[in-house]
């Protein structure tokens, strides 16, 4: 187990290192460096001005040297300043990470709360009309373009019915968390509708697999109540693949939901990554993307660990992966 963990950690480190370099290269491949963009708005800038600013931002140095400097500083926890926001990278990043975790965490919780019962129900009567209806509902959720759904929700609940606020993080000056709740409803609803389908189908598949197992038959034969068989025994085993999927999706939590965040003016990670890429803010884009990668890797590791921890049949001995 320790060897397994160590090898995975080493792998993760290599991936992160590679990733940081690749992002740096890609960002430099994007046309127009930051100073060019700053000066595009200033007609009177001279070549000397451009050279001066490039030196100031360290853009006059070769790529490898710049990357080396960044890496050195990053290793001691200094991620530099955002070019766009003139703030330390983490000062920019952390509040948005908080916003994203709130939004996506709530959506994930709600999704599971709905998907579990739906999936189990569908699995108990597969191919019946209810299963078909649930199936259709699931696919419908997956198949709607996200911004279209968001716009429809806003038009219906904020403009027509005026039940809910159209967008924003919360009321201005509002202190209590409960005041923020109405602002969460529409974005969480639109994220949930989009992800519920996938989870329901995972749950359904996992449950169907379990319900075919011998132990279920035995339990039924022994006269155990159907509810007890399904909810206590089968679901517990079906949890393994479901937890795996949740852990795998973990990384997505940290890279945010760009479209939903844009439509609901919810400043989160997705929007930050997009803006920093479009504004050529390398420091922010780099750290934000690395963060997202790191959490995905952590999620994968967690998924494996959960798999091993929950299922006694699997062990890590002698298995490199």
């Amino acid at each position: 187990m320790t060897r397994f963990l160590a090898s995975r950690l080493l792998q993760a480190l290599v991936v992160l290192l590679l990733m940081s370099f690749v992002i740096t290269v890609l960002m430099t491949l994007m046309p127009g460096d930051p100073v060019d963009m700053m000066l595009a708005g200033n007609p009177r800038a001279t070549p000397a001005d451009a050279a001066r600013l490039k030196a100031l931002y360290g853009l006059d140095k070769p790529l490898l040297e710049r990357y080396g400097h960044w890496l050195q500083a990053a290793l001691v926890g200094d991620f530099g300043f955002s070019r766009l926001y003139a703030q330390p990278v983490l000062t920019i990043l952390l509040p948005r990470l908080g916003n994203t975790l709130l939004l996506l965490g709530a959506a994930m919780a709600l999704t599971l709360a709905v998907a579990l019962p739906l999936g189990v129900y569908a699995a108990r009567r597969p191919y019946g009309w209810a299963d078909n209806a649930i199936n259709l509902f699931c696919f419908a959720g997956i198949s709607v373009p996200a911004f279209w759904l968001a716009l429809l929700l806003i038009l219906l609940f904020a403009v027509e019915l005026q039940w809910l606020p159209a967008s924003g993080l919360g009321p201005v000056g509002g202190e209590g968390w409960w005041e923020r709740l109405p602002y969460l409803v529409l974005p969480v609803a639109s994220l949930t509708l989009a992800s519920i389908g996938g989870y329901t189908r995972y749950v359904r598949a996992a449950m169907m697999g379990e319900l075919r197992q011998d132990y279920v038959r035995t339990a039924r034969a022994k006269g155990l109540g159907e509810g007890r068989v399904v909810w206590r025994h089968a679901l517990r085993n079906a949890t393994i693949p479901i937890v795996t999927i949740v852990a795998l999706e973990f990384g997505a939590l940290f890279s945010g939901a760009l479209v939903t965040e844009t439509m609901f003016a919810w400043p989160g990670m997705g929007k930050l990554i997009y803006d920093s890429i479009m504004g050529n803010d390398l420091n922010v884009a780099l750290v934000a993307l690395l963060f997202a990668t790191l959490t995905t890797l952590a999620g994968n590791l967690l998924a494996d660990a959960a798999y091993a921890g929950l299922d006694p049949r699997i062990s890590f001995k002698g298995d490199g992966a």
Binding site: I23, M30, I277, M278, T296
Partner: peptide, 16 residues
């Protein structure tokens, strides 16, 4: 699989 797909597509979509 570990890469955040959409942001990467955005970077790649904008490269020259």
């Amino acid at each position: 699989i570990a890469l955040p797909l959409l942001p990467l597509l955005i970077v790649l979509g904008a490269i020259d």
